[in-house]
Amino acid sequence: MLQKPWFKVFVWFMAIFFFFLAAGVVISILKPGPSEAEVMRFMMGMMNAMDNSMMGVIMNMEGRGMVASVIALSSRIAVPVMIVSLLMGFGVRLMQRRDAYAKQKEN
């Protein structure tokens, strides 16, 4: 799979993409401070996002009831899930130890 030409192209694409990102971040950090125009465009974009993207929905009145109920539900299931996973973690650990012990005895 890794030797297929199309996959090589994909891997190269990903590598170049990440290099581009790193270069973009370095440029952004080191470039001269944001000008008035940049800040204005950024703020305009943010205002636009309130109206045209999900950020507005999350911050919105109508979204609130739903978001609140989902968070309530997830925090209600969080505690039982935690307890179950703690028990399961120790259970799996014990099981692995038992298996290792059995293997040792076999040998």
Partner: peptide
Amino acid sequence: PFIIGGAVILGI
């Protein structure tokens, strides 16, 4: 919650 639970299992 399931991700955190899974992480707890794997941590243990």
